[in-house]
Simulated scan of single mutants.
Amino acid sequence: MTAAAPRAPRSDAPWDLSFLRVGALVTVAAAGIGAAVTGLLGGWGDALGVLVGAAVVTAFFVTSGLVIAWAGRIDDTFTLPAALGMFFVKAVVLFGVLNALPEHGWLDRRTLAWTVVAGALLWSGVHLRWVWTRQLYYVPPPAPPGAGGAPSTDPETPRKRG
């Protein structure tokens, strides 16, 4: 038998979910503008479809973010199964919601579905920008000044500015 490989030490750094607030604010602005334009051009049933679709996408991304962060706090290896599981659950829920709506009801299913697609792309863009603009460490970050550790002299260690 072979011995199990030693696990890397767990970081005590909390999962940063600040992209959820940014995504929600961007979605509120885009949905407000989209609903107003859609209401004027296509009718207020379509505008309601935009608002409901934006709410569905926001709820889906917030739920996924929270579940993935929860799984990551337990063990990093749980994040991928949590993400894939949430994707499956969200697809089933969306399919059920769209099928439960009447074909010619007060809410236009096609507008709702296209809003979900547009909202998912919008949230993906927000998340990508959030990741690209964050200072992410590939090693444990240096101890802050005054925390008992001397500042790092490693030239590869990024430093925070002011």
Rank of each mutant, 00 (worst) to 15 (best):
F95V: 13
G32E: 03
S64T: 15
T58N: 06
G146I: 03
W15H: 12
L48V: 09
Q135E: 14
V139D: 11
R109L: 01
G149M: 12
T133F: 08
P140M: 06
L101H: 00
D16W: 05
A54F: 04
I74S: 12
G85E: 10
L20A: 12
G34R: 01
F61E: 14
L94C: 11
D75V: 06
I68G: 03
D108E: 09
S11F: 05
T2N: 15
R7N: 09
L107P: 04
W44M: 04
I33W: 03
S64L: 14
A59T: 12
L25W: 07
W132Y: 01
A113T: 12
T111L: 02
L122Y: 07
A91E: 10
G162Y: 13
N99H: 15
I68N: 03
A3L: 15
T38W: 02
L122G: 07
V22C: 00
G72F: 04
W114S: 07
L48N: 07
A36K: 00
V131Q: 05
T58G: 11
S11R: 06
V131C: 05
R109C: 02
D76T: 14
P158I: 09
S124M: 15
L25T: 01
T133K: 11
L121W: 06
W123E: 14
V93R: 06
D76K: 13
G39M: 02
P142L: 11
T157Y: 00
W114K: 02
G72W: 04
V52K: 03
G23A: 10
F61H: 14
W114L: 13
K160N: 13
P141E: 12
R109P: 03
R161E: 15
V89K: 07
W44C: 01
T38H: 04
P141D: 09
G53R: 02
V62Y: 04
V92C: 12
W15F: 13
G72D: 06
L51N: 07
D16I: 02
A31E: 08
R7H: 11
D75T: 04
A59E: 08
G42V: 07
P14A: 13
G85R: 08
G42P: 00
P6Y: 11
V117Y: 05
F60A: 15
T58P: 00
S18P: 05
T58E: 02
V56N: 01
V131Y: 01
V97S: 06
L128Q: 00
P151G: 04
F78I: 07
L112I: 10
G149E: 13
T27C: 03
V139E: 13
L20E: 09
A35M: 05
A13D: 14
A71E: 07
L41F: 00
L41V: 03
A69L: 08
A147H: 14
L84E: 04
G119M: 08
L17P: 10
